[in-house]
Design a protein around this nucleic acid. Structure first.
Length: 371
DNA sequence: TGGATCCCTTACCT
DNA sequence: AAGGTAAGGGATC
């Protein structure tokens, strides 16, 4: 069918099942008959998307990849995948360091949970879809975007694959009404408006692709400014912007703080901002002249973010990824037939500390639970 | 005193 | 229910 090539990597450095369907990437399809993962992917230097197949044995010290594309060269694909999985980052040595300095890492075995480096535009749109949402539905939405508004790039293993639509394609081919019909809900408007602004940004920043615009944000700016630029897009608040920074622009120390991270930050690290500290955060963003950040920021969650970075260092985002997986416990993903299949449980669920949970909810401005 | 800003709710799709 | 964000009103300065 396809020729497979090996990339050597230990199980503890990368486990496909823990990174491809755990809430970072939403367009990998797991095919249980062959036990492989498939998706369409864009590789820099080629104008068309191609199809990638990955598999990993439970005991081997390698992953295998195959591909389908008219002109892709094997070496370029391998280089791209190494970049996609950030294999130059020595995960286990970082985890050893966290284990030595953070008691919460003590009982966590290496499980190959890595942060991916994904196509930035797709990352932006995917995480706009993620608000108030679960993995299984986010997955469906992302596949819907590709199959309705992307290009047909061919069939593999009885499955048709599509490119992820560019801003231009979304503006030309999609409408808010159509997206609502497809089940995007209130996010329909966010996606259309974001695509329009991105198309506009291509002119403004003299770029030919969405990816180039977002990469340029990261090149010309520090983190605070990148986030400010990202939060110009409708539907993008601090959490979504941080996800794009971490998983789309490989800013490895960025810690996206969602309800789960806020929960364990309170419960396991006793992180809670004082009034003074909250005032300091506000003052900081005032001084930095970041009007959108100032408007959208939640100082309590931002406090958690900075404390966890202090704790974990330059790869804090990766540490967050590990604890996040532990906190969430199990994940779901789509198979070729569109059925939802429960993934093998990797961790036991922890008992919830109700007090910490209510603190986390309060930090997120969620309605208070009646006592 | 009119605005800016802060703070808190509520609505949002399925 | 769930990996947030936008919008709007009342209070404060």
């Amino acid at each position: 069918m396809v020729k497979f090539h090996k990339i050597s990597v230990e199980q503890e450095d990368l486990q496909l099942k823990n990174v491809l369907q755990a809430g970072q990437a939403f367009r990998w399809i797991w095919e249980d008959k062959n036990d492989w993962y498939m998706t369409s992917m864009f590789i820099t230097g080629y104008d068309k998307y191609g199809i990638i197949v990955l598999r990993q044995k439970d005991d081997g010290n390698f992953i295998e990849f195959g591909f389908q594309h008219p002109t892709w060269e094997f070496q370029k694909v391998e280089d791209h995948l190494k970049q996609y999985f950030r294999l130059e980052v020595d995960l286990t040595s970082h985890q050893d360091l966290w284990k030595a300095t953070d008691p919460n890492f003590k009982d966590i075995p290496p499980q190959g949970i890595r942060i991916l480096s994904q196509e930035p535009w797709e990352t932006l749109i995917s995480f706009i879809c993620s608000s108030n949402n679960n993995i299984s539905r986010i997955t469906k939405m992302c596949h819907n975007l590709a199959s309705h508004f992307g290009d047909d790039i061919g069939t593999f293993d009885d499955t048709t694959f599509y490119s992820f639509p560019t801003s231009e394609q979304l503006v030309e081919r999609a409408t808010e009404e159509r997206l609502r019909e497809l089940g995007f809900g209130y996010r329909a408007k966010y996606i259309i408006e974001t695509a329009k602004l991105m198309l506009n940004d291509r002119e403004t920043f003299n770029c030919t692709t969405d990816q180039d615009v977002l990469i340029q944000f990261a090149k010309i700016s520090n983190y605070e400014k990148v986030r400010e630029m990202l939060m110009r897009f409708t539907g993008v608040g601090p959490k979504v912007a941080d996800c794009v920074c971490l998983m789309g622009l490989h800013l490895d120390e960025v810690v996206p703080v969602d309800v789960h991270v806020a929960r364990f930050a309170n419960r396991d690290y006793h992180i809670a901002a004082s009034k003074t500290e909250i005032a300091e955060i506000r003052a900081t963003y005032n001084k930095l002249n970041l009007p959108i950040t100032k408007k959208k920021i939640n100082p309590e969650l931002d406090f958690i973010r900075t404390k966890l970075i202090e704790k974990w260092g330059p790869f804090a985002g990766w540490a967050q990824g590990i604890l996040f997986s532990k906190e969430v416990g199990s994940v779901v993903g789509a198979t070729t037939s569109g059925d939802i299949k429960k993934k093998k449980r990797t961790f036991k669920n922890e008992d919830n500390d109700l007090k910490s949970e209510s603190l986390a909810k309060r930090a997120l401005n969620a309605p208070k639970v009646e006592a």
